[in-house]
Amino acid sequence: MAKYNLNINGVKRSVELDPTTPILWVLRDHLNMPGTKFGCGIAQCGACTIHLNGMAIRSCQLPVSAVGNQEITTIEGLSENGDHPVQEAWIEHDVAQCGYCQTGQIMTAAALLKNNPKPSDEDIQATMSGNICRCGTYLRIKEAIKTAAAK
């Protein structure tokens, strides 16, 4: 057990737990922030995607001990009211079917657009191929990213 002060969505959060605990479970179990999803636990599906210093990473592979004072952004902190351009585009295209993977998809897409505001189709495919959508909404995800990029 060790104590950590985390910087999550601009707020300092203190937790005391096993240093190997992945941020995914810190968020879900200890901080009651369930928007970041558990899908595979081995960084293969992208459901647990968050931003670490603005970069999209898989939180199931990030132990709490490795975070230090780096900035973590989760889906809960992406916008106040769901009005981030990517979230709005997701609603405009009615992307979701079951919806479980979509917060991870949105976090990956938001980081992509931050670093590459006008991505090509190839850029979108290359970046988004780490996020599985079992319902098969990839086409709408692509369209929503293009809509968000145009804003």
Binding site: T36, N81, A96, T103
Partner: peptide
């Protein structure tokens, strides 16, 4: 539930 989905 679209808004709830995209806001986690």
């Amino acid at each position: 539930e679209g808004l709830k989905v995209v806001t986690g």
